[in-house]
Amino acid sequence: MLVLQVLANGLILGGLYACIAAGFSLVWGVLNIINILHGSFIVLGGYLAFFAYSIAGIHPFASILIAAPLFFALGYALQAGLINRMIAAPVLLTLSLTFGLDLMLANGMLVAFSADFRKIILDPPLGVLSVGPLVVPVDRLTAMILALALTGLLYLLLARSRIGRAIVAVRMDREAAALMGVNVKRIYAVTFGLGSLMAGASGALLAMIFPISPLVGPAYLGKAFVICVLGGLGSVPGAMIGGLALGVVESFGALWLGPEYAVPLSFTLLILVLIVRPSGLLGKRGYE
């Protein structure tokens, strides 16, 4: 029975992880840029929800609606104003660029919010749901459902909308898309905006479940890496599968090896997968 409970916990965690990784994966896949800022954006989204609730009493589920446009605008501006200038530079330089920006943002948050861990404590609490022998906290369950819904919306946006088709076209073949009249730089900015939106929104959800601090940004970034490698780049279903897989692996790893091994376990998994399949489990085979 314990196994079933751990599985349920893992899937709930995994739903949130999917949401964390979807935007990161999209940016990586379309722009060929690793957004090191992603972890700090998640934390920033968490603070937004925290203060919205503690100051204005806005429920964290509702604060997603505030976070979404704000983070989209932030990401769009960053890409259009700064990162687009370096888009064709070697990996080392683009990576250093987002790394530098992340150091600034993380430092800024540390000064503004201190390193103290904070968590949204809902009043009244949402309680727990018992299904047979399983016990599931309602806040976690709802957060997971919302996270999956957000991820699903992103999927629909990419699959159905005009701008989504343009993003996919740029991902497939940038030159061809440009020839067909797609404004590639604008698409890059929109994509980065969407990635940031997903980070901010998932941060708002996470703040209800895990304590946030500027220090946890890198941990979420690391999870996004792992999920991308597990699920393959740039695809929302890949992020979904990778996220759920990581959630389950972490939960069982914590059960069998001890919670302190959850992170090294997932990173070891990452390295192993990369060694066996250099382009990710579900990704296309590497260069030939």
Binding site: I34, L95, Y261, V263, P264, L270, L274, I275
Partner: peptide, 28 residues
């Protein structure tokens, strides 16, 4: 031998993650 088969971002990330793994192992 293990990581240098990777290129670009994948190599960068894998090499970045190694320090994290070692740190946690030393911690444990």
């Amino acid at each position: 031998v293990a990581l240098l088969r990777l290129r670009g971002h994948y190599f960068a990330i894998a090499s970045l993650v190694v320090a994290e793994v070692l740190r946690e192992l030393v911690n444990a």
